[in-house]
């Protein structure tokens, strides 16, 4: 068990490569695309990413698609009066000059109908659809089940 914990710690501290890549689509910078390992394929996976709009026009993330899951959807975790629920997000605004994070406890992609277990160290592509900028494919790195985010030098 000690070795398991040790290896978990090592993996957490090792700097992942993919999740730290930045993909550009027009005025949009997309980085820190990551997911959590799943236990089997019966439970939904999750997708997190950070989008920065360097342009002067508002945009919005309106959908995600991936071969890793039959039904990927955008959701938002909302805590209202001490109760957490997870409504479907029709679109996630990416206002001009701002950054939007899909991160634990907020917006996230819910990957239902996984085609296979997401194992730590795996990666899979996700196509992001934006209202104005169009589509772009990012590589999503699967981090440990206990990860709280990628450990990139630029992610402070």
């Amino acid at each position: 068990m000690k070795s398991l914990i040790l290896s978990a710690l090592l993996t957490l501290s090792a700097a992942p490569v993919l999740a730290c890549e930045t993909v550009t689509l027009g005025d949009l910078n997309i980085e820190h695309a990551w997911s959590r390992a799943t236990i089997g394929a019966d439970r939904p996976g999750v997708f997190y990413v950070e989008i920065t709009n360097n342009g002067s026009t508002d945009d919005a993330l309106i959908g995600i698609a991936t071969p890793a899951a039959g039904m990927p959807m955008l959701h938002e975790t909302v805590v209202t009066d001490g109760v957490a629920s997870m409504p479907h997000a029709m679109s996630i605004p990416v206002p001009a000059g701002e950054s939007v994070e899909l991160a634990p406890g907020g917006y996230h992609g819910m990957l239902m109908g996984l085609t296979a277990t997401l194992a730590e160290g795996d990666s899979f592509p996700v196509t992001l659809s934006f209202q104005k900028s169009g589509e772009v494919v990012v590589n999503v790195e699967v981090l440990s089940l206990r990860a709280e985010g990628p450990d990139c030098d630029d992610a402070n």
């Binding site: 999750v46 089940l145 206990r146």
Partner: peptide, 20 residues
């Protein structure tokens, strides 16, 4: 609930970290 992709893993990860 175990089918919960966001809130539950986040909290259980923190519990795990506390225990370590």
């Amino acid at each position: 609930f175990t089918n919960c992709p966001d809130v539950c893993p986040t909290t259980l990860s923190e519990v795990a970290q506390v225990m370590d």
